[in-house]
Amino acid sequence: MSGLLALLDDVAALTKLAAAQLDDISAQAAKVGVKTAGVLIDDTAVTPKYVQGLPAARELPIVWKIARGSLFNKLVILLPIAMLLNVFAPWLLSPLLMFGGAYLCFEGAEKIWHIFHPEPVPVDTDKPIDHAHLEQQRVSGAIKTDFILSAEIMTIALSSIEADSIWMEGMVLALVAVGITIAVYGSVAVLVKADDVGLKMAQGAYFEATRSLGRAIVRGMPAFMETVASIGTAAMLWVGGSIIIHGLETFDINALGHFVQDMSAKVRDAVSIAPGFLGWATEAAISGVFGLAVGLVLLAIMGLGSRVFKRG
């Protein structure tokens, strides 16, 4: 009997330890997830464009295909690579993070450039649209874009984890990967089907108030999607610029980082209403402007390189 009681005590102790470990993993994952918010916003804003022009019945299956590809990217490819780098070449994480930040700056600057310099899209009205082929192309393109954004998310997450063992790091990173994928593509699914839901409400709801709400959703979704896309672009520049600024500090280039912190502190000291938010907004705005500058420089370099390559 005493042996059974001792065994039950051991089981209870192990259960408590496992529960504590799970709580720690969940807390770490939540904290790390907040630091990837900017990339998440961009990922959510970018994905809906891949279902535009395709039948409404295929929207959710396409989102599901992209989500599966995203999980494969994160869990099967990026997580093992990130863990190996963290063990054998941790010094590479900061340069890789800065490289990813530079890519975000480039993407954000390119989007802003195309707003002021739109490129005409050729339309072939004689050739019928092959929706199956178009869907395959869209899913493939979305998964490739997701791979880059997922690599940035996983690198940011890994650099933010405070764990005692490699196994804890791996579990936190896996939980972040799954949670982020659910959050992003769950939000995308809601966004792409919102207009269909609004249309059904407008046409078939019993109450006039519900029909009015449905009509408002249908009318408002295009502007809302444009707003989401704009927020995503701003988030790319803010996150990318911030990553590069913090990366420079790891190489003892601190002037820009000190300037951002000083300006943020001055704003917090100067205002009495929401000083924390306004201080953060100042920091984000300066990082975003810096990110835009970096992105425009990279855009110019890429354009020059493309012209030289064509001449060659």
Rank of each mutant, 00 (worst) to 15 (best):
T181K: 11
P275F: 01
D42I: 07
A30N: 02
D23Y: 10
P55H: 07
G295A: 12
K193T: 15
S140F: 11
G101A: 05
A216M: 00
E249D: 14
W167N: 04
G312Y: 12
V218P: 05
A27F: 15
G240E: 08
A284S: 09
G33M: 01
I25Q: 14
V123E: 15
V228E: 08
K127H: 14
S287L: 00
L96F: 11
I243H: 04
W238T: 03
Q137N: 11
Q203E: 04
H131F: 15
L104E: 01
G241F: 14
F259S: 09
S306N: 14
S159V: 10
G305P: 13
A109W: 00
K111W: 04
R215G: 07
K200W: 10
Y50E: 07
P61G: 01
K65Q: 00
L191S: 02
D146M: 06
D126I: 03
E152V: 07
A102L: 11
V289M: 02
G179W: 03
G276N: 15
P120A: 06
I273W: 14
I153C: 05
T233S: 10
M221S: 07
R268F: 10
L92C: 12
A132C: 03
G198P: 09
A6M: 05
F277T: 09
S230N: 08
A89Q: 10
I244E: 06
L71C: 08
E107M: 08
A30V: 15
L75H: 15
M83H: 09
F72S: 05
G33H: 02
I166A: 11
F224R: 07
I180D: 13
S242I: 03
A285S: 14
S165Y: 08
V188D: 07
A19Y: 14
L213E: 07
T282P: 05
V34A: 06
M168P: 03
S264C: 01
G186L: 08
A205C: 02
W64E: 05
L298Y: 06
S159A: 13
W280T: 13
A285W: 03
V123K: 00
A19P: 11
F207G: 05
L71R: 00
L292S: 08
A45P: 01
L8I: 08
I41G: 03
T227G: 12
G198R: 01
E169M: 01
A29P: 10
G257H: 10
G291H: 09
A202M: 05
Q21G: 13
L75M: 01
K35W: 12
M154D: 02
V267A: 05
A255S: 10
T155I: 14
L248P: 11
A223L: 05
K16R: 15
I143A: 04
A202F: 00
S150I: 03
A183E: 04
I148V: 14
V297M: 12
F259R: 02
H133C: 09
L304F: 00
V139Y: 02
V76T: 08
V87P: 12
V228L: 14
I41L: 10
S287N: 09
I231Q: 05
